[in-house]
Simulated assay, not measured.
Amino acid sequence: MADGLLLRPEAEARREDWEAGGFALYVHWPFCQAKCPYCDFNSHVARSIDQTRWARAYEAEIARAAREVPGRVLRSIFLGGGTPSLMEPETVEAVIGAARAAWGFANDIEITMEANPTSVETERFRGYRAAGVNRLSLGVQALNDADLRRLGRLHSTEEAVAAFGIARETFERVSLDLIYARQGQTPEAWEAELAEALRLVDGTGAGHLSLYQLTIEEGTAFGDRFAAGKLRDLPDEDRAADLWDVTQRLTDAAGLPAYEVSNHAAEGQESRHNLVYWQGGDWVGVGPGAHGRLTLGGVRTGVETERAPGRWLQRVEEDGSGESGREALSEVEAAEERLMMGLRLREGVEMGRLGALDGLGIPAEELAGMGLVAVEDGRLRTTAAGRPVLNAVLRELLA
Protein backbone atom coordinates (compact mmCIF):
# COMPACT_ATOMS: atom_id res chain seq x y z
CA MET A 1 0.00 0.00 0.00
CA ALA A 2 2.94 2.29 0.60
CA ASP A 3 5.43 1.12 -2.05
CA GLY A 4 8.08 3.68 -2.86
CA LEU A 5 7.98 5.54 0.48
CA LEU A 6 11.43 6.31 1.82
CA LEU A 7 12.69 4.31 4.82
CA ARG A 8 14.83 6.59 6.97
CA PRO A 9 17.70 5.39 9.21
CA GLU A 10 16.17 6.93 12.34
CA ALA A 11 13.00 4.81 11.85
CA GLU A 12 14.74 1.95 13.71
CA ALA A 13 14.85 4.04 16.87
CA ARG A 14 11.15 4.84 16.62
CA ARG A 15 9.77 1.32 16.50
CA GLU A 16 9.35 0.92 20.25
CA ASP A 17 7.38 4.09 20.91
CA TRP A 18 4.21 2.51 22.33
CA GLU A 19 4.74 4.38 25.60
CA ALA A 20 3.53 7.56 23.87
CA GLY A 21 0.07 5.97 23.87
CA GLY A 22 0.36 3.80 26.98
CA PHE A 23 -0.67 0.24 27.76
CA ALA A 24 -4.21 -1.15 28.06
CA LEU A 25 -6.23 -4.35 28.40
CA TYR A 26 -9.31 -5.13 26.31
CA VAL A 27 -11.57 -7.97 27.47
CA HIS A 28 -14.25 -9.23 25.06
CA TRP A 29 -17.46 -10.74 26.40
CA PRO A 30 -19.11 -12.35 23.37
CA PHE A 31 -22.67 -12.87 24.59
CA CYS A 32 -25.84 -10.79 24.09
CA GLN A 33 -29.53 -11.14 24.90
CA ALA A 34 -30.31 -10.54 21.21
CA LYS A 35 -28.37 -9.69 18.06
CA CYS A 36 -29.01 -6.12 16.87
CA PRO A 37 -29.64 -5.91 13.10
CA TYR A 38 -26.86 -3.34 12.50
CA CYS A 39 -24.20 -5.06 14.62
CA ASP A 40 -21.17 -6.72 13.03
CA PHE A 41 -19.29 -7.29 16.30
CA ASN A 42 -18.42 -10.79 17.46
CA SER A 43 -21.56 -11.35 19.55
CA HIS A 44 -23.67 -14.45 20.13
CA VAL A 45 -26.88 -15.40 21.90
CA ALA A 46 -26.46 -18.30 24.33
CA ARG A 47 -29.02 -20.09 26.50
CA SER A 48 -26.66 -20.69 29.40
CA ILE A 49 -23.17 -19.49 30.32
CA ASP A 50 -20.86 -21.04 32.91
CA GLN A 51 -19.54 -17.77 34.31
CA THR A 52 -17.07 -19.43 36.68
CA ARG A 53 -15.50 -21.27 33.77
CA TRP A 54 -15.27 -18.06 31.73
CA ALA A 55 -13.75 -16.15 34.63
CA ARG A 56 -11.03 -18.79 35.00
CA ALA A 57 -10.28 -18.61 31.27
CA TYR A 58 -9.94 -14.82 31.34
CA GLU A 59 -7.66 -15.07 34.38
CA ALA A 60 -5.46 -17.62 32.61
CA GLU A 61 -5.15 -15.51 29.44
CA ILE A 62 -4.29 -12.37 31.38
CA ALA A 63 -1.62 -14.24 33.33
CA ARG A 64 -0.17 -15.65 30.09
CA ALA A 65 0.00 -12.17 28.54
CA ALA A 66 1.72 -10.81 31.65
CA ARG A 67 4.46 -13.43 31.33
CA GLU A 68 5.18 -12.12 27.84
CA VAL A 69 5.01 -8.39 28.64
CA PRO A 70 5.79 -8.15 32.38
CA GLY A 71 6.45 -5.05 34.39
CA ARG A 72 4.13 -2.70 32.51
CA VAL A 73 1.63 -0.25 33.97
CA LEU A 74 -2.00 -0.45 32.86
CA ARG A 75 -3.55 2.83 31.86
CA SER A 76 -7.00 1.35 31.23
CA ILE A 77 -9.16 -1.77 31.13
CA PHE A 78 -12.15 -1.97 28.79
CA LEU A 79 -14.84 -4.63 29.07
CA GLY A 80 -16.53 -4.73 25.67
CA GLY A 81 -18.74 -7.05 23.68
CA GLY A 82 -21.24 -8.36 23.09
CA THR A 83 -22.99 -7.16 26.22
CA PRO A 84 -20.51 -7.20 29.13
CA SER A 85 -23.22 -6.06 31.54
CA LEU A 86 -24.55 -9.61 31.31
CA MET A 87 -21.45 -10.69 33.25
CA GLU A 88 -21.93 -11.42 36.91
CA PRO A 89 -20.20 -8.86 39.15
CA GLU A 90 -18.07 -11.71 40.49
CA THR A 91 -16.80 -12.42 36.96
CA VAL A 92 -15.88 -8.76 36.51
CA GLU A 93 -14.14 -8.72 39.88
CA ALA A 94 -12.11 -11.79 38.87
CA VAL A 95 -10.99 -10.13 35.62
CA ILE A 96 -9.95 -6.90 37.34
CA GLY A 97 -8.20 -8.86 40.08
CA ALA A 98 -6.24 -10.88 37.52
CA ALA A 99 -5.16 -7.67 35.77
CA ARG A 100 -4.06 -6.14 39.07
CA ALA A 101 -1.99 -9.23 39.85
CA ALA A 102 -0.46 -9.19 36.35
CA TRP A 103 0.57 -5.53 35.99
CA GLY A 104 0.76 -2.32 37.94
CA PHE A 105 -2.20 0.05 37.76
CA ALA A 106 -1.83 3.72 36.93
CA ASN A 107 -3.00 5.94 39.79
CA ASP A 108 -5.84 7.20 37.58
CA ILE A 109 -6.60 3.91 35.82
CA GLU A 110 -9.83 3.96 33.84
CA ILE A 111 -11.91 0.74 34.02
CA THR A 112 -14.80 0.92 31.56
CA MET A 113 -17.70 -1.43 31.00
CA GLU A 114 -20.18 -1.31 28.14
CA ALA A 115 -23.79 -1.68 29.26
CA ASN A 116 -27.31 -1.50 27.90
CA PRO A 117 -30.05 0.37 29.77
CA THR A 118 -32.40 -2.58 30.30
CA SER A 119 -33.74 -3.04 33.81
CA VAL A 120 -31.92 -6.38 34.17
CA GLU A 121 -28.54 -4.79 33.53
CA THR A 122 -29.22 -1.62 35.53
CA GLU A 123 -29.79 -3.73 38.66
CA ARG A 124 -26.16 -4.83 38.46
CA PHE A 125 -24.55 -1.38 38.29
CA ARG A 126 -23.67 -1.18 41.99
CA GLY A 127 -22.11 -4.64 41.86
CA TYR A 128 -19.86 -3.58 38.98
CA ARG A 129 -18.81 -0.43 40.85
CA ALA A 130 -17.90 -2.53 43.88
CA ALA A 131 -15.90 -4.85 41.59
CA GLY A 132 -13.76 -1.90 40.44
CA VAL A 133 -15.48 -0.47 37.35
CA ASN A 134 -15.28 3.34 37.46
CA ARG A 135 -16.61 4.30 34.02
CA LEU A 136 -19.73 3.10 32.20
CA SER A 137 -20.39 3.32 28.46
CA LEU A 138 -24.17 3.20 28.11
CA GLY A 139 -25.53 2.00 24.75
CA VAL A 140 -28.66 4.13 24.50
CA GLN A 141 -28.44 4.40 20.65
CA ALA A 142 -31.70 6.39 20.22
CA LEU A 143 -34.01 8.52 22.30
CA ASN A 144 -37.29 7.62 20.66
CA ASP A 145 -39.09 4.31 20.98
CA ALA A 146 -39.91 3.83 17.30
CA ASP A 147 -36.25 3.99 16.28
CA LEU A 148 -35.20 1.84 19.22
CA ARG A 149 -37.51 -0.89 17.95
CA ARG A 150 -36.19 -0.42 14.41
CA LEU A 151 -32.64 -0.82 15.72
CA GLY A 152 -33.59 -4.02 17.54
CA ARG A 153 -32.96 -2.56 20.99
CA LEU A 154 -34.62 -4.17 24.01
CA HIS A 155 -35.06 -1.01 26.11
CA SER A 156 -37.38 1.98 25.93
CA THR A 157 -36.51 5.68 26.06
CA GLU A 158 -37.89 5.82 29.60
CA GLU A 159 -35.62 2.96 30.68
CA ALA A 160 -32.64 4.64 29.02
CA VAL A 161 -33.17 7.92 30.85
CA ALA A 162 -33.64 6.12 34.18
CA ALA A 163 -30.55 3.96 33.63
CA PHE A 164 -28.44 6.99 32.79
CA GLY A 165 -29.50 8.66 36.03
CA ILE A 166 -28.56 5.58 38.05
CA ALA A 167 -25.25 5.32 36.20
CA ARG A 168 -24.37 8.94 37.00
CA GLU A 169 -25.06 8.26 40.68
CA THR A 170 -23.02 5.05 40.69
CA PHE A 171 -19.93 5.64 38.54
CA GLU A 172 -17.34 8.38 38.50
CA ARG A 173 -17.68 8.80 34.74
CA VAL A 174 -20.39 7.87 32.23
CA SER A 175 -20.48 7.94 28.44
CA LEU A 176 -23.70 7.90 26.44
CA ASP A 177 -23.73 6.27 22.96
CA LEU A 178 -26.10 7.26 20.16
CA ILE A 179 -26.48 6.22 16.53
CA TYR A 180 -27.63 8.85 14.05
CA ALA A 181 -28.16 9.08 10.28
CA ARG A 182 -30.93 6.56 10.78
CA GLN A 183 -33.77 5.76 8.40
CA GLY A 184 -35.94 8.80 7.76
CA GLN A 185 -34.06 10.95 10.27
CA THR A 186 -34.13 14.66 9.43
CA PRO A 187 -31.62 17.25 10.69
CA GLU A 188 -34.44 18.82 12.72
CA ALA A 189 -35.32 15.51 14.41
CA TRP A 190 -31.68 14.76 15.15
CA GLU A 191 -31.16 18.26 16.58
CA ALA A 192 -34.03 17.73 19.04
CA GLU A 193 -32.78 14.26 20.02
CA LEU A 194 -29.17 15.35 20.46
CA ALA A 195 -30.29 18.35 22.50
CA GLU A 196 -32.09 15.94 24.85
CA ALA A 197 -28.95 13.81 25.13
CA LEU A 198 -26.90 16.89 25.95
CA ARG A 199 -29.37 17.82 28.66
CA LEU A 200 -28.84 14.39 30.17
CA VAL A 201 -25.07 14.56 29.97
CA ASP A 202 -25.23 18.14 31.20
CA GLY A 203 -21.80 19.24 29.98
CA THR A 204 -20.67 19.96 33.55
CA GLY A 205 -17.40 18.01 33.56
CA ALA A 206 -18.74 14.46 33.58
CA GLY A 207 -19.81 14.53 29.96
CA HIS A 208 -18.89 12.13 27.16
CA LEU A 209 -20.88 11.29 24.05
CA SER A 210 -20.06 8.69 21.40
CA LEU A 211 -22.05 9.66 18.31
CA TYR A 212 -21.81 7.25 15.39
CA GLN A 213 -23.39 7.54 11.97
CA LEU A 214 -25.24 4.35 11.10
CA THR A 215 -23.20 2.20 8.74
CA ILE A 216 -24.60 -0.78 6.85
CA GLU A 217 -22.21 -3.71 7.21
CA GLU A 218 -22.16 -6.88 5.14
CA GLY A 219 -23.17 -9.98 7.07
CA THR A 220 -25.65 -8.13 9.30
CA ALA A 221 -29.44 -8.22 9.12
CA PHE A 222 -29.41 -4.60 7.93
CA GLY A 223 -26.82 -5.52 5.31
CA ASP A 224 -29.05 -8.28 3.96
CA ARG A 225 -32.08 -5.98 3.89
CA PHE A 226 -30.11 -3.26 2.16
CA ALA A 227 -28.86 -5.69 -0.50
CA ALA A 228 -32.47 -6.77 -1.10
CA GLY A 229 -33.60 -3.15 -1.46
CA LYS A 230 -35.69 -3.32 1.73
CA LEU A 231 -33.80 -0.78 3.85
CA ARG A 232 -35.19 2.48 2.56
CA ASP A 233 -34.88 6.19 3.34
CA LEU A 234 -31.30 6.12 4.53
CA PRO A 235 -29.67 9.57 4.37
CA ASP A 236 -28.03 10.52 1.11
CA GLU A 237 -24.65 12.26 1.11
CA ASP A 238 -26.11 15.75 1.48
CA ARG A 239 -28.40 14.84 4.38
CA ALA A 240 -25.59 12.94 6.11
CA ALA A 241 -23.44 16.09 5.84
CA ASP A 242 -26.26 18.16 7.36
CA LEU A 243 -26.57 15.69 10.24
CA TRP A 244 -22.81 15.89 10.81
CA ASP A 245 -23.00 19.70 10.91
CA VAL A 246 -25.81 19.59 13.48
CA THR A 247 -23.71 17.24 15.61
CA GLN A 248 -20.66 19.51 15.62
CA ARG A 249 -22.64 22.70 16.22
CA LEU A 250 -24.61 21.40 19.22
CA THR A 251 -21.75 19.58 20.93
CA ASP A 252 -19.39 22.54 20.52
CA ALA A 253 -21.98 24.88 22.03
CA ALA A 254 -22.51 22.49 24.97
CA GLY A 255 -18.80 22.30 25.80
CA LEU A 256 -18.36 18.76 24.46
CA PRO A 257 -16.35 19.27 21.26
CA ALA A 258 -15.19 16.34 19.12
CA TYR A 259 -11.77 15.23 20.31
CA GLU A 260 -12.06 12.33 17.84
CA VAL A 261 -14.18 11.86 14.73
CA SER A 262 -17.13 10.28 16.59
CA ASN A 263 -16.37 11.08 20.23
CA HIS A 264 -17.15 14.26 22.14
CA ALA A 265 -16.15 15.17 25.68
CA ALA A 266 -15.77 17.88 28.24
CA GLU A 267 -12.11 18.61 28.94
CA GLY A 268 -10.52 15.77 30.90
CA GLN A 269 -13.36 13.33 30.17
CA GLU A 270 -11.91 11.76 27.02
CA SER A 271 -11.86 7.94 26.85
CA ARG A 272 -8.39 7.01 28.09
CA HIS A 273 -8.75 3.51 26.73
CA ASN A 274 -9.55 4.57 23.18
CA LEU A 275 -6.75 7.14 23.35
CA VAL A 276 -4.35 4.21 23.76
CA TYR A 277 -5.55 2.94 20.36
CA TRP A 278 -5.57 6.32 18.65
CA GLN A 279 -2.20 7.38 20.06
CA GLY A 280 -0.44 4.18 19.01
CA GLY A 281 -0.05 2.48 22.38
CA ASP A 282 0.08 -1.24 23.13
CA TRP A 283 -2.83 -3.31 24.35
CA VAL A 284 -3.56 -6.93 25.24
CA GLY A 285 -6.76 -8.35 23.73
CA VAL A 286 -8.41 -11.18 25.70
CA GLY A 287 -11.55 -13.09 24.75
CA PRO A 288 -13.14 -14.49 21.58
CA GLY A 289 -12.32 -12.33 18.57
CA ALA A 290 -10.28 -9.79 20.55
CA HIS A 291 -7.35 -8.15 18.78
CA GLY A 292 -4.19 -6.84 20.41
CA ARG A 293 -1.13 -4.81 19.50
CA LEU A 294 2.13 -5.50 21.32
CA THR A 295 5.65 -4.22 20.75
CA LEU A 296 7.81 -7.33 21.10
CA GLY A 297 11.57 -7.08 20.63
CA GLY A 298 11.10 -3.67 19.04
CA VAL A 299 8.58 -4.96 16.49
CA ARG A 300 4.92 -3.91 16.41
CA THR A 301 2.93 -7.17 16.43
CA GLY A 302 -0.74 -7.81 15.75
CA VAL A 303 -2.33 -10.55 17.86
CA GLU A 304 -5.64 -12.27 17.00
CA THR A 305 -7.78 -14.68 18.99
CA GLU A 306 -10.18 -17.46 18.10
CA ARG A 307 -13.58 -15.92 17.28
CA ALA A 308 -15.97 -18.76 18.18
CA PRO A 309 -16.70 -18.62 21.93
CA GLY A 310 -16.75 -22.37 22.46
CA ARG A 311 -13.54 -22.95 20.53
CA TRP A 312 -11.80 -20.04 22.30
CA LEU A 313 -12.72 -21.48 25.68
CA GLN A 314 -11.56 -24.92 24.66
CA ARG A 315 -8.23 -23.61 23.35
CA VAL A 316 -7.55 -21.73 26.58
CA GLU A 317 -8.37 -24.75 28.73
CA GLU A 318 -6.70 -27.43 26.62
CA ASP A 319 -3.91 -25.63 24.75
CA GLY A 320 -3.14 -22.86 27.23
CA SER A 321 -3.79 -20.08 24.72
CA GLY A 322 -6.81 -18.55 22.98
CA GLU A 323 -4.68 -16.97 20.26
CA SER A 324 -5.30 -17.84 16.62
CA GLY A 325 -2.44 -15.94 14.98
CA ARG A 326 0.21 -13.24 15.06
CA GLU A 327 1.61 -10.89 12.46
CA ALA A 328 4.72 -8.75 12.73
CA LEU A 329 4.05 -5.38 11.13
CA SER A 330 6.68 -3.86 8.87
CA GLU A 331 7.94 -0.34 9.53
CA VAL A 332 5.68 0.94 6.77
CA GLU A 333 2.62 -0.95 8.02
CA ALA A 334 3.14 0.26 11.59
CA ALA A 335 3.54 3.85 10.40
CA GLU A 336 0.44 3.62 8.21
CA GLU A 337 -1.56 2.35 11.17
CA ARG A 338 -0.24 5.15 13.38
CA LEU A 339 -1.27 7.68 10.74
CA MET A 340 -4.76 6.21 10.27
CA MET A 341 -5.44 6.08 13.99
CA GLY A 342 -3.78 9.38 14.88
CA LEU A 343 -5.65 11.41 12.29
CA ARG A 344 -8.92 10.41 13.93
CA LEU A 345 -7.95 12.75 16.77
CA ARG A 346 -8.51 16.49 16.60
CA GLU A 347 -4.90 16.94 17.78
CA GLY A 348 -3.61 14.75 14.95
CA VAL A 349 -0.37 12.79 14.95
CA GLU A 350 3.27 13.74 15.52
CA MET A 351 5.13 13.71 12.21
CA GLY A 352 8.18 12.43 14.06
CA ARG A 353 6.32 9.21 14.93
CA LEU A 354 5.54 8.33 11.33
CA GLY A 355 8.93 6.73 10.78
CA ALA A 356 8.87 5.21 7.30
CA LEU A 357 6.16 7.65 6.18
CA ASP A 358 8.16 10.81 6.84
CA GLY A 359 8.13 11.36 3.09
CA LEU A 360 4.47 12.45 3.26
CA GLY A 361 5.34 16.11 2.81
CA ILE A 362 4.12 16.55 -0.78
CA PRO A 363 0.61 15.03 -0.46
CA ALA A 364 0.20 16.70 2.92
CA GLU A 365 1.03 20.06 1.36
CA GLU A 366 -1.46 19.45 -1.43
CA LEU A 367 -4.23 18.56 1.02
CA ALA A 368 -3.29 21.55 3.19
CA GLY A 369 -3.78 23.75 0.16
CA MET A 370 -7.31 22.34 -0.13
CA GLY A 371 -7.98 23.17 3.52
CA LEU A 372 -8.32 19.50 4.56
CA VAL A 373 -5.20 19.09 6.71
CA ALA A 374 -2.78 21.31 8.57
CA VAL A 375 0.84 20.81 9.63
CA GLU A 376 1.61 22.81 12.77
CA ASP A 377 4.21 22.42 15.51
CA GLY A 378 5.39 19.13 14.08
CA ARG A 379 1.89 17.59 14.00
CA LEU A 380 -0.28 16.60 11.07
CA ARG A 381 -4.01 16.95 11.72
CA THR A 382 -7.24 17.15 9.79
CA THR A 383 -9.14 20.42 9.77
CA ALA A 384 -12.84 20.89 10.47
CA ALA A 385 -13.37 20.45 6.72
CA GLY A 386 -11.16 17.36 6.57
CA ARG A 387 -12.59 15.36 9.48
CA PRO A 388 -15.91 14.42 7.84
CA VAL A 389 -13.99 13.17 4.77
CA LEU A 390 -11.19 11.47 6.71
CA ASN A 391 -11.28 8.29 4.62
CA ALA A 392 -10.70 10.27 1.44
CA VAL A 393 -7.87 12.21 3.10
CA LEU A 394 -6.19 8.95 4.16
CA ARG A 395 -6.53 7.51 0.66
CA GLU A 396 -4.63 10.50 -0.70
CA LEU A 397 -1.94 10.41 1.98
CA LEU A 398 -1.33 6.68 1.53
CA ALA A 399 -1.66 6.56 -2.25
Rank of each mutant, 00 (worst) to 15 (best):
E59M: 04
T118G: 12
E68S: 05
W103S: 03
G71M: 04
G97F: 02
A55K: 12
E68F: 05
F105R: 05
P89S: 01
R72Y: 03
D50Y: 12
G71Y: 10
A94G: 10
A57C: 09
R56D: 15
M113G: 11
V92M: 01
D50Q: 06
E121N: 13
T118V: 06
L79N: 04
G97A: 06
T112H: 04
W54P: 14
N116Y: 14
Y128S: 05
I109P: 05
M113F: 13
I96F: 05
I96T: 10
A57N: 12
P117V: 02
R75W: 00
A60L: 00
A99L: 01
G71L: 00
R126L: 01
A66P: 11
R129Q: 14
A98W: 06
R75T: 08
E123C: 00
A63P: 14
R64W: 06
A98Y: 02
F125R: 00
T52N: 14
E110G: 09
T118A: 05
V120Y: 15
G104T: 08
A131I: 10
M87F: 13
V95Y: 02
R53L: 08
P84D: 08
G80L: 01
L79T: 12
V120R: 15
R100V: 00
R126Q: 08
G71P: 14
Y58I: 06
A55Y: 14
A102S: 13
T83M: 06
A101D: 13
E68H: 09
A55H: 15
E61C: 09
A130L: 04
V95I: 15
G80C: 00
N116V: 08
Y128A: 00
A102T: 10
A99C: 11
W103V: 01
G80K: 03
S85R: 15
G97K: 03
G82R: 07
L86F: 13
D108G: 03
R129Y: 11
